[in-house]
Design a protein around this nucleic acid. Structure first.
Lengths: 126, 126
DNA sequence: ACACCTTTTACAAAACTTTTACAGAACCCA
DNA sequence: TGGGTTCTGTAAAAGTTTTGTAAAAGGTGT
């Protein structure tokens, strides 16, 4: 075997006080324990995290994670969000928030929030 | 990390509390007793061990051990994994884990794991 | 032909995903 | 504010895909 050249593209990661995502290895740790996400659960969380602080519309989630084109009626997104929240345990409330009639938003743990979260805040128009 | 130069002067081995593999002589011992692996079984285990701690995809295993190009439907990998596990006996559970819809991963025995193994943990995507 | 190894076959079991059905929460407007 | 409407949460059932397993069939070398 010849010399091994490793192009040191730095690993893509998300990291905060509790949660760690390695986008290269597609692994997720919560307080150093593997979260045990399934593929769809991981894809969903990764997409939310990659847009941390921003609202990701249901439409976008269904498109990017499921490949569903618009106007498909399904509850699978809700069910996956629920299972994600369950696996995120006590922190789920701080991590994933619902934007009514729009989508979901991931918030980094204890990130200094310029904006206090409103009870249900309209974020995008129809 | 820089280029990796492997000087082939010293024997290539894997060793832990129970398992010993000699890559030069292609022998495997379990608790000092020869494991009695067949050719394919050895190749499979060796490839997994050479990527210890990392997921090796089914695709990669089928390519490197069987020379199968992609998109060949076969169960022979599963059958070989099963026989490997059988020969690894009581330790098989700690050694070879299944990554659902992705492949398999070899974990060194009692390696200090930052992560406790999850039931089925998503590790790689399609 | 014999012994041994590999692959396929067929089915069982496990893991994962989606739907269903309904409860509950949020929104809108008179 | 109340009532209708829409949207989300949730549990459980149903469906799909993937893996495990035993046994038979197929190869290979001596």
């Amino acid at each position: 075997m010849g010399p091994l050249q490793i192009t040191a593209t730095h690993e893509q990661r998300y990291h905060d006080q509790h949660l760690d995502l390695d986008f290269d290895h597609k692994t997720a740790l919560l307080d150093t324990k593997p979260l045990g996400l399934t593929r769809k659960e991981y894809d969903l969380l990764a997409l939310l995290i990659q847009n941390a602080g921003e609202v990701v519309t249901r439409e976008m989630l269904l498109l990017r994670v499921w490949g569903y084109s618009n106007q498909i009626r399904t509850r699978t997104l809700d069910v996956h969000i629920r299972r994600l929240r369950k696996k995120l345990g006590e922190h789920s409330g701080t991590y994933i928030e619902t934007i009514f009639s729009v989508g979901y938003r991931f918030q980094p743990f204890r990130a200094p929030r310029l904006v206090q979260r409103a009870p249900q805040m309209m974020a995008l128009g129809a």
